[in-house]
Design a protein around this nucleic acid. Structure first.
Lengths: 204, 204
DNA sequence: CCCGAACGCTACGGGACCGTATCGGCCAGG
DNA sequence: CCTGGCCGATACGGTCCCGTAGCGTTCGGG
C-alpha cells in the first residue's frame, strides 16, 4: 500500500507520461494516439489502458508532471518582483514542451470539460503568483489600496502571452520590463531613471 | 469568364464555406471532416474534392469569407480612436463564429504552413488598424515621435486577446477603456477627468 | 524459492475518414 | 432541341485508430 513499493510500474508510468507530453507538444491533443504513445514509451498499449481511463486523463496527468512552479521573490521592489515573476512563468512555462502544448490544450479545452478545468487551473495558478506580489505591494503602500488587482494582472500577463502564443515571438527580458513599467506608471510607480525600459536584475 | 455567370456553382460554394466555418467553430480544424461538410452543406463530397485541393485550403477560404473589417475612425482623439478600433476588432472578430475558430486555427497553424500564413495575416491585419491610429497621433504630435509603435500595439491588444482566448471572458467596453488609458498614461496622455476608467463614446 | 500480479505481445472486430471511380441526372449554351 | 459539362449519389478499397481478449513472460514480495 506504500507508494515506494512499485518500481517497474512507476518507471513505465513515467515513460508513458513523458511520451504523452512529447506527442501533445508535437502533433497536438487530437492527433495524439494511444498506439503512438505505446510505441514511443515502450509500454504496451494494454498496460496504458489498464492504468488510464481515457486519453484526456492521460493528458491531464502529463501536463501536471511537467508544470513548472516559479519562485516568487520578495525584494521589496514591486517592479523587480513583477519582472522576476513574469520572466519566470513566461520563460519556464511557455518555453519548452509546455509552451508547445498550450495552444492545443486550450483548443481542446473548449470541448472537453476535463481539459477545460486543467487549463483554467493552470491559468489561475499563474495569475496567483502575480496577485501575491501585487497585494504585498499594496500592503506596503507602494500601490493604492483601491487598485483592481485582477485588471493589473491581465494588463501584465496579456501582452506577454499574446506575444508568445499568438505572435509566436520570443518573450524577451526587455519586453517584460517594458510591460511592467508601462502598467506601473499608470499607478504612479516610476521606472528607474537609467534607461527607458530598465535592465533586469541579474538573478533571472 | 465573367463572375456572375455561375449560379448553382456559386451557391454550392458558399454553402460549403459556411458549413466549413460552422464545423471548425464547433469541433475544431482537426475533427472537421469532408464527409460532414458534405452532409451539412448538401453538397456532394465529390464536388467538394473537385473544387478544393485540401481541407486546409477550404478552411483558409472559409475564414476569409467570414472575416470582418472594422472602420478606422479619425475623431482627432487618440483615446477615442483606439477604443473604437479595439472595440470593433475585438468584438466583431473574436465574438461570433470567428472567435470560436481562432484557438483551433492557431493550434493547427503550428503545424500547417498554409494555416500559419492565414493566422499571421489575420493578426497583422488587426494590428495594422491600431498602427494606423497611433501613427496618425504621432503625426499630430499627440504622441512622442520615438514611440515604439509595435510595442504599444502589443500592450493594447495583448490584454484583450488574452481575456478573450485564454480566460474565456467577455471583453467589455470598460476593459477596453481601462487598457487604453493605462497604456496612454505612460506616454503622457491623460484619461478624461470624469471617472477613472472613462466612458465609451456612444458611437460604438 | 515460489506464486501471484502485473506486464508485453499479438490479434481481432468495429468504426471513422479518406480519396477515387462509376454512373445517372440536370442545367446551360449553342 | 440537344449536347457537353458539371453535379449528386453510391460504392469501394485502403488506412488509421479504437478498445478488448487471450496468453506467455517476468518481476517482486512472502
Amino acid at each position: 500500500m506504500v507508494e515506494s513499493m512499485q518500481s517497474r510500474s512507476q518507471r513505465a508510468r513515467q515513460a508513458v507520461l513523458d511520451a504523452t507530453a512529447d506527442l501533445v507538444a508535437e502533433v497536438g491533443v487530437e492527433r495524439t494516439t494511444i498506439d503512438e504513445i505505446a510505441s514511443r514509451s515502450g509500454v504496451a498499449k494494454t498496460t496504458i489502458y489498464r492504468n488510464f481511463a481515457s486519453k484526456e486523463v492521460l493528458v491531464v496527468e502529463a501536463v501536471h508532471a511537467c508544470t513548472y512552479i516559479p519562485v516568487v521573490t520578495d525584494t521589496g521592489s514591486l517592479r523587480d518582483d513583477l519582472i522576476s515573476c513574469f520572466s519566470g512563468t513566461t520563460k519556464a512555462s511557455y518555453d519548452g514542451r509546455l509552451g508547445d502544448m498550450m495552444l492545443s490544450l486550450m483548443d481542446a479545452a473548449q470541448r472537453d470539460p476535463e481539459l477545460g478545468r486543467l487549463v483554467r487551473a493552470q491559468t489561475d495558478q499563474r495569475r496567483r503568483f502575480a496577485t501575491t506580489v501585487i497585494e504585498r505591494a499594496i500592503a506596503r503602500g507602494d500601490l493604492p489600496a483601491d487598485v483592481d488587482v485582477d485588471l493589473v494582472v491581465t494588463l501584465l500577463a496579456g501582452p506577454l502571452i499574446y506575444t508568445k502564443l499568438v505572435r509566436r515571438q520570443r518573450v524577451t527580458d526587455e519586453l517584460v520590463a517594458a510591460v511592467v513599467d508601462t502598467v506601473l506608471s499608470r499607478y504612479g510607480v516610476a521606472p528607474p531613471a537609467d534607461g527607458q525600459t530598465g535592465t533586469l536584475s541579474s538573478k533571472v
